Amino acid sequence: TTYKLILNGKTLKGETTTEAVDAETAERVFKEYAKKNGVDGEWTYDDATKTFTVTE
């Protein structure tokens, strides 16, 4: 399944996708990605669109 991440950081904005077996796995991948890019904020997930959003 393809999951999407929307980054709404103070200095970094953008989108990325990952293939994962479930939302929990995708969330771990995306949180590591955000951490590596210095983005830390509020996380939300929309199951209907398989989209995570992190907003600083």
Results as ranks from 00 to 15, higher is better:
L5T: 01
D47Y: 08
A20G: 04
T53V: 10
N37P: 01
K36H: 15
K35R: 12
E15H: 11
G14Y: 10
Y33L: 05
K13R: 13
F52H: 02
V21Y: 14
E56R: 03
Y45C: 01
T55A: 05
Y33F: 12
I6V: 11
K13Y: 12
E42H: 13
T51V: 08
K4I: 11
D47H: 10
T44V: 10
V21M: 14
D22T: 06
E32C: 06
T44S: 15
V54G: 01
L5Q: 00
T53N: 05
K50S: 05
F30M: 03
T53S: 07
T25Y: 08
L5P: 00
G14D: 08
E32H: 09
F52C: 01
K10V: 13
T16M: 12
T51D: 01
Y45P: 00
E42T: 15
A20D: 03
G38N: 14
R28W: 08
T55C: 06
D46H: 05
G41N: 01
E24A: 12
V29S: 07
N8E: 08
K50N: 06
E32V: 08
T51G: 02
Y3E: 00
E56P: 06
L5M: 06
T17E: 07
Y3V: 01
E32T: 10
R28T: 08
I6Q: 06
D47N: 09
T51M: 04
T17K: 07
G14P: 04
V29G: 04
E15W: 13
E24I: 15
N37R: 12
A34H: 01
L12A: 09
D22P: 01
T44W: 10
K13S: 12
F30D: 00
K4W: 13
A48V: 12
K31A: 05
T17H: 12
K35P: 01
A20M: 03
T11L: 15
D22F: 04
E19I: 14
G41F: 03
L5R: 00
T17W: 15
E24D: 11
K35L: 13
E42L: 10
T25I: 08
R28M: 11
K31F: 06
E27T: 05
D22G: 04
W43V: 02
G38E: 06
K36I: 14
K35Y: 13
E24S: 12
G41R: 01
W43Y: 03
D46W: 04
K4T: 13
V54N: 02
K50T: 04
Y45T: 01
K4L: 09
A23Q: 12
D40N: 12
N8L: 13
D22Y: 04
E56I: 08
K10Y: 10
E27S: 09
T55P: 01
D40M: 13
W43C: 02
T17Y: 14
F52D: 00
T18W: 09
L5H: 00
A26N: 00
Y33P: 00
E15Q: 09
K36T: 14
A48R: 08
F30G: 00
K50F: 11
T2V: 12
T44I: 08
G14N: 08
G14K: 14
W43M: 04
K36C: 07
Y33S: 02
E27H: 11
V39W: 10
T1G: 09
I6F: 08
V39E: 02
T2D: 04
L12Y: 13
G14S: 15
T55R: 06
V21E: 13
K50Q: 11
F52R: 00
G9Q: 04
K35M: 14
E19P: 05
T51A: 04
K13G: 06
G38L: 09
T53R: 06
K50W: 07
T51P: 00
T44P: 00
D46P: 00
T11C: 10
R28P: 03
T11V: 13
K13D: 05
Y3N: 00
T11M: 15
T2R: 11
T51C: 05
G9H: 07
E56K: 03
T16G: 05
T11P: 04
G41E: 01
Y45M: 02
T55E: 07
T44Q: 12
V29D: 05
E56L: 07
T44D: 11
K31Q: 08
E27G: 09
D22L: 04
T18R: 05
E27I: 09
I6E: 04
D46V: 06
D47V: 12
A48P: 09
G14W: 15
N37D: 03
K35N: 11
A48Q: 14
E19S: 12
A48C: 07
T49L: 08
L5F: 06
T18Q: 06
T16E: 06
G41W: 06
V21T: 12
E27P: 00
Y45S: 01
A20W: 02
K50P: 00
G14R: 14
A34G: 03
T49N: 08
D47W: 08
Y45H: 02
L5N: 00
D40R: 12
R28K: 13
K36W: 09
G41V: 02
K4F: 14
W43I: 03
K4A: 05
Y33Q: 03
A34F: 03
V29M: 10
V54F: 05
L12S: 09
L7T: 05
T53I: 09
K50A: 06
A48K: 14
T53C: 06
A26V: 03
A23F: 14
L5E: 00
I6L: 09
T2S: 09
A20L: 03
K31M: 09
A20I: 03
E32L: 13
F30A: 01
A23C: 08
G38M: 05
K13E: 06
K36L: 12
T25H: 15
L12T: 13
N37E: 08
T2G: 05
G14I: 15
A48I: 10
A34R: 01
D22C: 04
F30Q: 00
F52A: 01
Y45W: 03
T11H: 13
F30S: 00
V29T: 11
T16V: 14
A26F: 01
Y33D: 02
K10R: 14
E56D: 08
N8R: 13
K50I: 02
K36E: 11
